[in-house]
Amino acid sequence: IDFIISDYNMPYLTGTELLHRIRLDRKLRDIPFLMITAEANMEVVAEAAEVDVDAYMTKPFVTAALEQKITELLDQAAHPGQVTLLLRRAQELEEEGKLDEALAAVAKAGASSPTLSRPFREMGRLLLKKNDLPNSLAAFQKATELNRLDVTSYHGMGQIFFQMGRIDKAIDNYSRAMTISPRHAERALDFARLLLQQDKATEASRVMRLAFKINSNDPDMKERLTRFCADHGLHDLTIKASREILKQDPGRAKVLGYLGIALCKKGLFNEGVLTLEKAAAENEPDPELWIALAQAYLAMRMTGRAEKWAARAIRMAPDNEKARAIYDACL
């Protein structure tokens, strides 16, 4: 394969998702990649830049312009510049576990082209991998000084400030990264987690809604996002997302459990226990589901059913204090 042209909008994955997979493949990662998009907005451009797209074109365009762009990229591939060669060598050294040598190659790349942000971004990433937080932070900061849209560096600084315990700074940098490029599920989870730690549930819900919208065609990621919402008490969002997932794929038994628990947390016990009963029947034995059922039935003053589910949980997990407390309350 000498060249790849891909549309951004495709049925099962986006052009950037395809490019991300290609960049992870040693045999394919250096193939020139031209992305075609009808969306000329900053979000798409930033998303493509995060995975090192070689070039992109916005539709509509004339054939001559496409031919010229292909010729330019093929020429660049045939005659790579010094920075490209040094960064490729750094990647190879990193894969061999030679981080110090990789850093030296990246430093040379930065010295040869001091106005490019990518060498400093790579330096920050490698230093972070070595857990050298102060120098990693300095490298990422340099990258953002050179390129205010270097979203990966803002993300990196968010990670570093979080590790340093400087939560406000971490939130600020994650917020900048999300503003520039909101189409990143892992970043959304990290950012929402930080917001929740600061008791900013409304803002966290807003971030998660955006993540659901962006990943609307990825059922596995949607289930993961739903689990996050369920685990962190975002009950309204858990209910909405679970219903959407189950409408598309009724066989996702785990999601039934998330939905049932969230319904009960919101006081919607009648629908909640029916959903949890179904989840308990379709999932592998799960004491947490049984305890949720016991709690719900106890709240409904249906002690016989509460006792039944609490007893089942105790048989599987005899030391579970929550199950024992519910069981004792039923006596």
Rank of each mutant, 00 (worst) to 15 (best):
I1S: 14
I1F: 15
D2A: 13
D2C: 07
F3N: 02
T16W: 07
L19G: 02
R23M: 12
R26T: 10
L28C: 09
M35L: 12
T37L: 09
T37P: 11
A38T: 15
A38V: 14
A40R: 07
V44W: 00
E47R: 00
A49F: 03
A49S: 01
D52R: 14
D52I: 11
D54E: 01
T58Y: 08
I70M: 07
Q76R: 10
G81A: 06
V83G: 13
L87H: 07
A90Q: 05
E92F: 11
E95V: 12
G97P: 09
A102I: 07
L103A: 03
A104W: 00
A104Q: 09
A105I: 01
A105Y: 00
A105M: 03
V106T: 05
S113H: 06
P114I: 04
E122P: 02
R125I: 10
L126R: 02
N131M: 06
P134T: 13
F140E: 04
D150A: 13
S153Y: 02
Y154S: 10
Y154G: 06
H155C: 10
G165P: 15
G165K: 15
R166W: 15
I167T: 11
K169V: 13
I171N: 08
Y174I: 09
S175D: 12
R176S: 12
A177I: 11
I180W: 02
P182R: 06
R183T: 11
H184V: 14
A188K: 02
L189K: 07
R193N: 14
L195N: 05
L195G: 02
Q197H: 07
Q197R: 06
A204S: 08
R206V: 15
V207R: 04
N217A: 12
R224M: 10
L225E: 02
F228S: 05
D231L: 15
H235D: 13
H235Q: 12
R243I: 09
E244R: 10
I245D: 07
P250M: 05
V255L: 13
L256G: 09
Y258Q: 00
L263W: 13
K265H: 08
K265P: 00
F269T: 00
N270A: 03
T275F: 09
A279V: 01
E282A: 04
P285W: 04
D286L: 02
P287G: 00
L289T: 03
I291M: 07
A294V: 04
A294D: 06
Y297W: 15
Y297M: 01
R301I: 14
A317V: 01
A323E: 06
D328N: 01
